[in-house]
Design a protein around this nucleic acid. Sequence first.
DNA 1: ACGAAGGTTCGACGGCGGTCGTACTATCGA
DNA 2: TCGATAGTACGACCGCCGTCGAACCTTCGT
Lengths: 111, 111
Amino acid sequence: MARPRTTPRTVEHPELSEVSLQQALEALADPVRRMVVCQLAQAGGEKGCGTFETPVSDSTLTHHFNVLREAGVIRQHYRGTTKLNSLREAELEARFPGLLPAVVTAAEAEA
Amino acid sequence: MARPRTTPRTVEHPELSEVSLQQALEALADPVRRMVVCQLAQAGGEKGCGTFETPVSDSTLTHHFNVLREAGVIRQHYRGTTKLNSLREAELEARFPGLLPAVVTAAEAEA
DNA sequence: ACGAAGGTTCGACGGCGGTCGTACTATCGA
DNA sequence: TCGATAGTACGACCGCCGTCGAACCTTCGT
């Protein structure tokens, strides 16, 4: 049959205009999420969910990815069984100028 | 007697070098605290504790001021019975370049 | 000396968010 | 078709943080 037996996996992303500063700051205020963002910034492109170094379990990490996505910080899409993540840098810069670079720079300087 | 019967009121401020990005972001991630910061930025100088517009009680507000002070965001000192607050803009800029302006700008743009 | 004004301290409470393990689904490769 | 791999969903737990009211402490004005 042409139809897959199960629904394909898609991901919902908010428009940046629908994201509040509150959401963005809450997203960036968690240490684990900031690790994710920094590793993504350092990678400079896409990165699979399983390739991040964090101190938490897989299910917790999934939760953090969801928060970041809903805050408009990252974009996610599937390729095969892996889920790729990337920063929405340009859009974020348009919505909250200077915020992401400031946080990433400070985080890297601290580490 | 030369000694006052009670201790005069002094306020402890951390060095900005002792403040973590975590603290700063947590401080700025609360809506009430962000109101305080914005009103302070808009005032451009010092502002008494009682002169802020917030939706919370006095005791809660005291708590928020403490958090902001311990995060190095504001400086406080007494003059008579009133406590004056000001932003530690320059020091903050040196420690976390671009962070405060980005947050304040975004907050003002949103409002 | 006294009262009022401006803040603080303390304890209590409630809700939310980060964490985990387990069970589950989707895709790929053999 | 089957197993392995990658990630998700769900429920539970727990600790922390924002909130309040009441009692208290300073300082000023009278």
